[in-house]
């Protein structure tokens, strides 16, 4: 959906310019979200605290995570 008075092409161009204007911050955001995902996946599936292991036991076995 484009704002009124703007053609789809113009809107696309503005969007592209916005993205291109901040490549460094965009890359940082991507890196941050990817690290967040990898860390929480590690906590859920791989971290070896006894409490975490017991709590996540059935999920770990069923998700194919290497478990004890």
């Amino acid at each position: 959906m484009t704002p009124s008075g703007v053609t789809a092409k113009e809107f696309d161009m503005t969007t592209q310019t916005k993205v291109a204007a901040k490549p460094a911050s965009a890359l940082l955001s991507i890196l941050f979200v990817a690290l967040l995902g990898a860390t929480s996946l590690f906590v859920a599936g791989h971290a070896q605290s006894a409490t975490l292991h017991d709590a996540a036991h059935d999920v770990r076995h069923s998700s194919g995570f290497p478990c004890h």
């Binding site: 967040l36 995902g37 929480s40 996946l41 859920a44 999920v59």
Partner: peptide, 10 residues
Amino acid sequence: LTYVSYGLLL
């Protein structure tokens, strides 16, 4: 938690 993690990576 596991699928939110997958979602973040996705």
